[in-house]
């Protein structure tokens, strides 16, 4: 079982990078979605006030 720790470390780090990357994309998407929803609400408000 020589070097088993190296194999585990490589897979852990590799999969970790993919996981962290997809997490950051998901986080950015969620924050953008929130911003979009707020903006749409503001637009609706301003449209209502305009009427």
């Amino acid at each position: 079982m020589k070097n088993l720790d190296s194999v585990f470390a490589a897979y852990l780090i590799g999969w970790g990078v993919f996981f962290v990357f997809s997490l950051t994309v998901a986080k950015r998407a969620a924050s953008l979605k929130k911003e979009l929803a707020q903006l749409k609400e503001r637009l609706q408000d301003s449209a209502r006030q305009g009427k």
Partner: peptide
């Protein structure tokens, strides 16, 4: 030996 399995990633 075992360490070659890193090849698959």
């Amino acid at each position: 030996g075992l360490v070659q399995r890193i090849f698959y990633l």
